[in-house]
Measured scan of single mutants.
Amino acid sequence: TLFEALYDYEARTEDDLSFHKGEKFQILNSSEGDWWEARSLTTGETGYIPSIYLAPV
């Protein structure tokens, strides 16, 4: 399942991933609670993103 960003997000740590509204992600690991490891389909970068900023596509 792909997810789309509902809002912009600016990374706060080196493990976080910055993204823009409308960016799409492949989720790599969603077992860490509210922060999911994801790969951006726009940039190819991976990192942790807040799941509350996402909606399934």
Rank of each mutant, 00 (worst) to 15 (best):
S30I: 11
L2G: 02
Q26C: 13
R12C: 14
D16N: 12
T43C: 03
V57D: 06
D34L: 12
A11F: 03
E14M: 12
E37T: 10
Y48A: 05
Q26P: 00
F25C: 01
K21G: 04
E4Q: 10
L28D: 03
L17P: 02
S40H: 07
S51N: 07
W36N: 01
S40I: 05
A38N: 00
W35N: 07
A38Y: 03
A38R: 00
G44N: 08
S51F: 08
P50H: 14
E14S: 13
I27S: 01
V57H: 06
G44Q: 06
S30W: 14
S31V: 10
H20Y: 11
Y48P: 02
A5S: 06
L54K: 00
D15W: 15
S18F: 03
F25G: 00
T42S: 12
G47E: 01
T13A: 11
E32K: 14
Y9L: 03
F3S: 02
P50T: 04
Y7K: 08
I27D: 00
G33F: 09
A55I: 13
G44S: 05
G44M: 07
E37M: 15
Y48D: 02
E32V: 11
G44A: 04
V57G: 04
L6A: 05
N29P: 04
R12L: 12
L28Y: 05
L54M: 10
L2T: 08
Y53P: 02
W36A: 02
Y9D: 01
L6W: 05
T43H: 03
K21A: 11
I49W: 01
A55Q: 14
E4C: 08
I52R: 14
I49F: 01
D15P: 05
F25E: 00
S31A: 12
D34G: 11
L41A: 05
S51K: 14
Y48C: 10
L54G: 01
G22V: 00
T42K: 13
R39Y: 09
G47A: 04
S18G: 08
I27P: 02
D34M: 12
K24W: 14
G47I: 04
D16W: 10
E10R: 09
L41T: 07
A11N: 05
K24I: 15
S51L: 06
K24Y: 13
Q26R: 08
F3N: 01
G47Q: 04
S30Q: 13
R39G: 01
A38C: 11
K24H: 11
Y48G: 04
A55C: 09
A55D: 06
H20P: 05
S51I: 09
S31N: 12
T46C: 08
W35R: 14
T1P: 12
E10Q: 12
A5Q: 00
D15A: 14
I49Q: 00
W35F: 10
P50D: 09
P50F: 11
T1N: 12
Y9T: 01
E10Y: 09
H20T: 13
Y53E: 02
I52P: 07
D34K: 08
R12M: 12
W36D: 01
G33P: 15
T42C: 11
